[in-house]
């Protein structure tokens, strides 16, 4: 599988990162098998979080077995020192390892959170302290909703080394600053910050719960995913062609094998096809009156 430099971290990550939340839905034996399958495809970058149910615990055995082969990202939603320090130790314990390669401030949504995180006594103090103690190697950030906030975070966190954000043809086709992840990609490229793409396989929101109860959804994802080999290959190739360093696999284990296959066989995507996907998605939710042509 193709590898790309993860910004200036020194890590060469496979273009697919394994979203280990998929392990949460499996028994331990199945989780072990899935990790073996992922490693068989050459994937060397895993991502996990303490909020993903039992994913840390289920990843632990195989992670310890193959620790040297895996670059591990983990996350915290804590915003203050005490909580973040506690979560780092808790994740290390649950994973059963000594060092997390990339520790990410998770799900940044509001400017005030950034204030808290970067203030004295904020989560960053704990993360930097853990870095000094050798518990983590690199510092990252994830945000699902606001490219401008990511740019602010890059301005305000000098030692930020990676960012994780959504990117797919639906997002790429929307106008307005709230969807301008292209600006984030450009900024990261210029500053040597690694980029991880999420929601690459999102088709759309689930129907309202009065139409489809949460318990009746066929996939564990927070969104309705594309789920055909062709659709998955297309979405992977699109995301990988946007300039991301690596694309995170979807959270449902039923989709992972298809995604591994797509990433292993990827041959890139030319611009005319990328535009075709964006145009197709754009017309699903167009603010402009419809007309005959594209």
């Amino acid at each position: 599988m193709e590898t790309r430099a993860l910004g200036d971290t020194g890590q060469e990550s496979t273009v697919l990162t394994f979203g280990s939340i998929a392990l949460n839905w499996l028994e331990q034996a199945g989780a072990n098998q899935l990790v073996e399958l992922v490693l068989d495809h050459g994937v060397n970058h895993f991502d996990v979080a303490p909020t993903y149910g039992d994913a840390e615990l289920k990843l632990g055995p195989k992670l310890r077995q193959y620790r040297e082969e895996v670059f591990l990202g983990c996350k915290t939603q804590e915003r203050e020192y005490e909580g973040a320090a506690r979560k780092i130790d808790r994740s290390l314990n649950r994973l059963g390892i000594d060092t997390i390669d990339l520790y990410q401030i998770h799900g940044l949504e509001y400017e005030e959170e950034l204030d808290t995180i970067t203030a004295d006594g904020g989560a960053l103090d704990a993360i930097r302290e853990a870095k000094d103690d050798g518990k983590i190697d690199h510092i990252g950030l994830t945000s699902h909703g606001d490219p401008e906030l990511i740019l602010d975070a890059i301005d305000r966190i000098d030692d930020l080394e990676t960012v994780m954000f959504p990117l797919n043809p639906v997002v790429a086709g929307k106008d307005g600053d709230e969807y301008d992840y292209e600006a984030v990609l450009e900024r990261c490229e210029a500053e040597g910050i690694g980029t991880l793409g999420i929601k690459a396989f999102a088709k759309g929101s689930w129907p309202p719960t009065d139409e489809l109860a949460e318990a009746d959804r066929p996939y564990a994802n927070w969104y309705e995913p594309v789920d055909t080999p062709e659709g998955i290959r297309e979405r992977f190739d699109f995301a990988a062609a946007q300039g991301l360093d690596t694309v995170v696999s979807p959270g449902d284990p039923k989709l992972v094998a298809m995604v591994l296959d797509a990433a292993s066989r990827s041959e890139g995507m030319d611009e005319a096809r990328q535009r075709a996907l964006i145009e197709e998605a754009r017309h699903d939710d167009s603010p402009v009156p419809e007309q005959l042509h594209h």
Partner: peptide, 20 residues
């Protein structure tokens, strides 16, 4: 330059042609 390959003829485009 090739702008689109393939061209996505969405339901909305087809509706516009049916309107004609």
């Amino acid at each position: 330059k090739t702008l689109l390959d393939p061209v996505p003829w969405t339901e909305a485009h087809l509706d516009a042609h049916a309107d004609v």
